[in-house]
Amino acid sequence: MRQIEVSNCSYIYQPGTINAHQALDQINIAIDAGELTAVIGHGGSGKSTLALLLAGLFAPSSGEVKIGDGRIPPEQLFRQVGLVFQYPEHQLFASSVFEEVAFGARNAGTAEDYLPVKVRQALETVGLDPDLYWHRSPFELSGGQKRRVCLASLLAIDPAIIILDEPTAGLDAAGRRWLKNLLRELHCQGKTVLWISHDMSEVAELAERVIVLERGRVIADGATASVFSCEEQLAAAGLEIPQSARLVRELKARGLAIPGEAVTVDGAFAEIAAYLGGDGSV
């Protein structure tokens, strides 16, 4: 089922002024329900603008963004599309974790006596013990915990589409692992997940599909392995494939009899081990 349809969509910041800047240029993207998609591209390529358009926070300068059947009024869109901004912890405001997480759900019309249930579920999903955190101020939590609170706020609204702008930026290894698992879990629950990332190894590991933006245009869109096989094209867009992917491609280019298609460490290991002889369990 088609869930997001972006047709001929452009977005211009400050149109008609000397600072006018075209962030998106006639973009076409169609995403089905349940897809797990990564959006990559260097700074200024239009990734965050795309996220804002999908969430209905910006209206396209031209073209159309259609969510679901396209009949959701803009002010109701936030129930369907949840957007987690870059560094969402900068926008915390409430005096307790409960109030913070309940805010969106309350605005979405969740009954007051049902809110605690929603908040509890959401906190459990992000791995925060509700009893320990309920009354604490979100401001006194660590960076990683703050980010979990922000994600819980979104999950409490239970949107069908979840968009995240660089959710792993600034997290440590454990935090990144946790977030990757959360994305996987949301995907398994049938959510449509689209996330923006600068971490190519994370994209290689997780994404089913990758959309590459460059100067406001989609320059590649397809299955992860096939997008990462166009190394030159990515390099032109200022992106690098993960080191393990680069390694097997370089080995192949140097004449080694391997497929040279892997994009993850595990995939690269399998290729190299197979070449070295046998199945890797010498």
Binding site: G43, H198, G238
Partner: peptide
């Protein structure tokens, strides 16, 4: 202190 964590690969 993590000067590149908010930057894209090129920057």
């Amino acid at each position: 202190d993590e000067p590149t964590s908010m930057l894209d690969p090129q920057m």
